[in-house]
Design a protein around this nucleic acid. Structure first.
Lengths: 145, 145
DNA sequence: CGGTAATGGTTCGCATACGAAGGGAATGGG
DNA sequence: CCCATTCCCTTCGTATGCGAACCATTACCG
């Protein structure tokens, strides 16, 4: 197991992409038996955090383009995870609610993410974990508002 | 500067995704005038690192699925960035070479990534930069080999 | 009040991503 | 020497991800 092909060592963008891909891929496997994708799971957590959000609000919370969210919400609605209801006050707005299928497994699903994060960070000291989170938050807010 | 909508604070997977998305998005803008995508730029750097690689070798170097690479390489070949040549020794193999269009801008393109990484990490101390890279490498190698 | 701007969603197009299946070519065992 | 296996790549299907164009609705402004 020599390192004959050192993978683009000094490119942080590359490292970020691959670290993300690995974490994402691992959680994806965890979620597969539940029939949820990572993003769909994130949507549920967002709605448990605050129910009845509009698609725009949820998109802001999850830092996600509304165009991307639109398709995700459709699939989740079709699969019975969430409900989309037009707001009678403002008929442009769609308000989002978790459905029974999701609420029934709420505790289990939330535990999944907690566990996945714990596993991900298991190799780091508490100080490193805090620092990593801070640095990632700094990176993700670069140039944001 | 209120934090009315704290975005899923304790999920490192989420932070990783968003940090990656932002870094990726910024570099994407930088590359747009050149008509290259991030992955395409990465392919060029991989081939400058070692010319004549097979698609499988390049995929390993870039930690990328060959299925994804296949389409990317097609588009880059069509656009004149690279050349695909069947290996006469083993006709299953496609060997990849940069084309003139890429080599003519090699120095400039490499400088782009150097600059993007520097900008990305500008807010961190040297120690933090080293630590961040180490942690990202640890994360990306979790469960690998 | 009417025209215009702004807002919320959807749709489309393109580019990743990756699992899975498939086709063509080389290799090894019998 | 042939077949099974293996290897490399492509194709297909699904799911992001986001810019841009669009519709519907609401807000604003004179």
């Amino acid at each position: 197991m020599n390192k004959t092909t050192k993978p683009m060592p000094d490119c942080t963008i590359f490292l970020l992409a691959k670290a993300y891909q690995r974490a994402h891929g691992r959680f994806k496997e965890v979620l597969k038996p539940y029939g949820l994708t990572n993003l769909q799971h994130l949507v549920l957590e967002g709605l448990w955090y605050e129910s009845g959000q509009t698609a725009a609000e949820l998109g802001k919370l999850l830092v996600m383009d509304k165009a991307t969210l639109s398709g995700v919400l459709d699939r989740m609605s079709d699969a019975g995870w969430i409900e989309k209801r037009r707001d009678p006050e403002d008929r442009r707005v769609v308000r989002l609610f978790t459905a029974a299928r999701a609420d029934d497994q709420k505790a289990e699903l939330i535990e999944l993410r907690r566990k996945a994060n714990q596993d991900l960070l298991a190799g780091f000291s508490a100080e490193e974990q805090v620092l990593l989170k801070r640095m990632l938050m700094d990176l993700m807010e670069l140039g944001a508002a």
